[in-house]
Design a protein around this nucleic acid. Structure first.
Length: 136
RNA sequence: GCGGAUGGCCGGAUGGCCGCGGGGGGCGGCAACGCCCCGCGAGGAAAGUCCGGACUCCCCGAAGCAACGGUGCCGGGUAACGCCCGGCCGGGGAAACCCGAGGGAAAGCGCCACAGAGAUCAGACCGCCACGGUCACCCCGGAGGUUCGCCUUCGAAGGAGCCGCGGUAAGGGUGAAACGGUGGGGUAAGAGCCCACCGCGGGGCUGGCAACAGGCCCGGCACGGCAAGCCCCACCGGGAGCAAUGCCAAAUAGGGGCCCUAUACGGGCGGCUUCGGCCCCGGGGCCCGGGUUGGCAGCUGGAGCGCGCUGGUAACAGCGCGCCGAGAGGAAUGGCCAUCGCCGGCGCGAUCUACGCGGCGGUACAGAAUCCGGCUUACAGGCCAUCCGCGCGC
């Protein structure tokens, strides 16, 4: 099972090794931030739903939040989905995210936990591209 | 070895890359913060939120009574419990063992359908039996007739059947349950009518702390079931919950107090006018309390865990030594990968078992949210001990 891992590592070489100058994404914790992001653009993917909005303040930080409601499953299923979303955000957002934006990743029942990790990474990149395209 | 019963335990391992949440230390920096190092970081059920507590706030003189809710054989354990341990009784099993809301039905009310003759101080449907009446039929005797086979008629004893009037609670049948069961005597047939044993009720005796058990005497036997319908008795119980509760504080809006502004624009006050004064409104400053949101505390060292000894059948308790084992708050404890375990079935190695190799599939239930003690429910796979029965060997 070497080829898949190698291809992902090669394709995401830039994303997997974020440059030191890039700011690590901050985590959203306030309900108000989530409500504002929900008013922005949304892009549905097989493993998750992405929401994003430009904050419009002078801070250049990329921020991201995670949502898994009870529709995703019991506590174990929700936690697992949230952890996988956290992991793909950590890999992709520093390179593909836009400074000054807030993103929210929403977990989906079964799909978020079952979809191969490499696919999830690719999904987030294309979702970000489409979201930014809509915003333009 | 096979089948079964009970109690207890585990619930993947190692490594690599990249991460997360607390804590401690070091360096840089006024600080915010950044970097480095060390150590810690989910469960047996963390789950359901069903009981019992600790801890907070609210209410409240004490006690009793009433209401409401809960518990319910006895003894013990415990901070407490509806939990646990030991025992008793009843039921199931060949046994180990398992199951039981298991106080009171002579305090009272209520209910007991259907079936059945009759369902509580009940009842005669079938059956059984005695007596009275009637009589088919059989046997005997007399008289008459005769084809000598027998026929008719009268009388008497018995008598199936039918009718009437009674006896009976043994048997059949109905039912969850039928004035207790089995056997014998007895009787017309039967019946606690009488007797023995069992059961039941009462009394005292012995053993036991008790639930209760054992045997003795008396009574021929009455007092049906449901209390998970109401009820009675005994015991227990204030309410709400960590989003409890306490502390700190910015912006905005609003409330209160004090001071200043005033001659202002405006309104009011002493009969009127002027000056002056006071008050309201307006503006400014300071302070106070409430409050949204946010932050801090509560927040984890405790009815704690491990080992040993002592007491106890045990639950458990005491003592000694050792240990610190999550503390988040849109909520960390992870993501990806490799190797190895474990289980299942398949193929190959000689046919099976054992064993080896190969590839395939599976590796559960489930995520702390103030903290403890329980209960209940879920769970891939596995381990240990004790006991019962059967088989084999010594």
């Amino acid at each position: 099972m070497i080829p898949p891992g190698a291809s992902v590592a090669g394709a995401n070489a830039g994303a997997a090794m974020p440059p030191a100058v890039s700011v690590r994404p901050e985590i959203l914790r306030k309900r108000a931030d989530f409500l504002r992001a929900a008013r922005g653009r949304r892009q549905a993917m097989p493993g998750f739903v992405l929401q994003g909005i430009a904050r419009g303040d002078e801070s250049g930080a990329i921020r991201v939040g995670f949502t898994c409601s009870k529709k995703v499953g019991n506590a174990v299923a929700r936690n697992r989905a949230k952890r996988r979303l956290r992991e793909i955000a950590r890999h992709v957002l520093p390179a593909a995210g836009r400074p000054g934006w807030d993103y929210v990743l929403i977990g989906r029942r079964e799909a978020t936990a079952a979809r191969p990790f490499a696919d999830l990474l690719a999904d987030l990149e294309t979702a970000l591209t489409r979201l930014h395209g809509l915003a333009r």
